[in-house]
Amino acid sequence: MAARVAVVQFPGTNCEQDVVEAVRSFGAEADVVFHTADSLGGADAVVIAGGFAHGDYLRPGAIARFSPVMEAVTDMANQGAPVIGICNGFQVLCESHLLPGALQKNSGLRFVCGVVDLRVESVDSPITSQADVGDVLRIPINHFEGNYTCSSETLAQLRGDDRVVLRYVDNPNGSVDDIAGICNEQRNVVGLMPHPERASHALLGSTDGRVLIESLLATAGVRT
């Protein structure tokens, strides 16, 4: 059976259709789930897509965390299902304490929009299981608050437990230790600032994001 992915949409989310299209291009099922839902409809994996949930008011992700759907997302995370936060979704997962640390304004107060090289640092995650350590992927970024920060203890844990999943080859935003993506202790929750769905078709200029989505579907499929 094809894996089913729920793509969460808050008011202000704007990347959910891109994620849906990217998932469907692999023959898997994807449905948008609005933030007021209290269930994810039996999906095998969840993606919190990018955008500006609740206008990013107060802090990105701060209000989204209290949306009804987040209880279902937290339940899925606790059950070990893949939960992926892309860009604003990464911010939501940090605010929800499903991932450690926080994303602050980019160094130099610069909004960054472009294509960057990412190095795969760990293949023990739902988005990199089909990649190889050291692979360099060209994937778009598009954010103002992507400067990952955390306490030195948390950073030591992330490094020691191989939980830095992706690093920037050339750090665009000041993230500590060039971090572009991390996973939680159980390794099923991943947050990343870059947008793999925007590198999922040759027409978009890169297909390097496909291996990340393929990995997610492979991980989700194993659980069905």
Partner: peptide, 13 residues
């Protein structure tokens, strides 16, 4: 306010 040690790009600018 931002905690000590956290970069404050708005303040710096």
């Amino acid at each position: 306010t931002l905690r000590p040690g956290i970069a404050d790009p708005q303040g710096a600018t």
